[in-house]
Design a binder for these strands. Sequence first.
DNA 1: TCAGCTCTTAAACAAACGTTTTAATTGATG
DNA 2: CATCAATTAAAACGTTTGTTTAAGAGCTGA
Lengths: 212, 212
Amino acid sequence: MSQLDTVNRILDAAEVLFAERGFTETSLRTITSTAGVNLAAVNYHFGSKKELIQAVFERFLTPFTESLDRELNRRESQAQLQVEDLLQSLYRVALAGLAREGRDPKRFMRLLGLAYTQSQGHLRRFIVSRYGASYRRFAGQLSGVLPQVDPVTFYWRLYFMLGATIFSLSSFDAIEAILREDFGAVSSLDETLARLAPAAVAMLTAPDVGAA
Amino acid sequence: MSQLDTVNRILDAAEVLFAERGFTETSLRTITSTAGVNLAAVNYHFGSKKELIQAVFERFLTPFTESLDRELNRRESQAQLQVEDLLQSLYRVALAGLAREGRDPKRFMRLLGLAYTQSQGHLRRFIVSRYGASYRRFAGQLSGVLPQVDPVTFYWRLYFMLGATIFSLSSFDAIEAILREDFGAVSSLDETLARLAPAAVAMLTAPDVGAA
DNA sequence: TCAGCTCTTAAACAAACGTTTTAATTGATG
DNA sequence: CATCAATTAAAACGTTTGTTTAAGAGCTGA
């Protein structure tokens, strides 16, 4: 087993276990035994548990933001951008890029949700410093096609949208199971994104009654 | 210090610390020293850490759902219910009821978010079995005033709305700090709810393109 | 006043945690 | 084949965790 194997086996196991149970609830012993490597390998290759957590995020956020940036480049050269187009960029292209690599988009949404809700200050700092530029660029473009919405209202709605996305996709399997039991209707991730996109557009473009 | 004092001091400290750091990241020693009581008091009065967590949720979810139920009773007797009315019931009345008791609604949103994202299976079971009826009643009434929306689409949108609400309100202070720095605009909780309600209405009432 | 119960206290428990250490093993290079 | 650095392995480290124990204090009712 080469060094690269060990590193990737640890990342694979950590990614799944973190998404399932959270960071604090997942011990290095569980990770290494799942990965079939020695306990000390984590500290040898990554330095510490904190750095392993960051490495897990780096491995999926880097291709994610690269896909998003490429898509934003393409959109930017077009005139007449629509809100729908930008959300399609975010939802379809970027997520589909991850799925194409054989990784589960729902798992990444769960991890993103954990990054926000589990305190882990180091992780939030890491993500903001590393990927904040892409996020601000997307937000800027989206804000640009919504000139009628007050900036503060826009940013609140952006967080509403993020919350709706992260929350519903990170709990996708649980929600899907409930709906399947109650209505006998199976929902695929694609179908759910097809429902989420217009809902998000409706929220972003709603008439601005304007507080303050 | 009476027995009731000890129990309440533990609940007060646990509520704040859980909301700040999460369940696993908050030790019983931190809770008891913050509360100024002996370490063993938690196991004596609550039995275990799990049961303490449930007690914290019970203390704010019971009055919350009671307020909501009373409000739903009042609405039910009226004809011509509107989506806006029901969301107002949820946002203003129930949350305001908690605020009236001198407790912080944002903190409860943070705890609700944790209940969903931190694995803690026992907590989700506890909440569903104890408060599921009120939730289903609210969902049923809301669904009733949206007959044009396909049931499956409705339930997905309900989760979108829950995600937007829990996510943005539980991170309220962080988001508010960012917007204050970028726009110099302070947002109160009331203002944010005044933005959230119409955004949620727009999402729920959006035309149903209808998957499946 | 004293028995009897409730509650608090201090101390100890075993288990699990992240990390470090030291030695064995591997694999490439001269 | 010998050498040397990189990697793996097993064991132990000191902390911290939730929980339990056993003794003490404080109050109540007879």
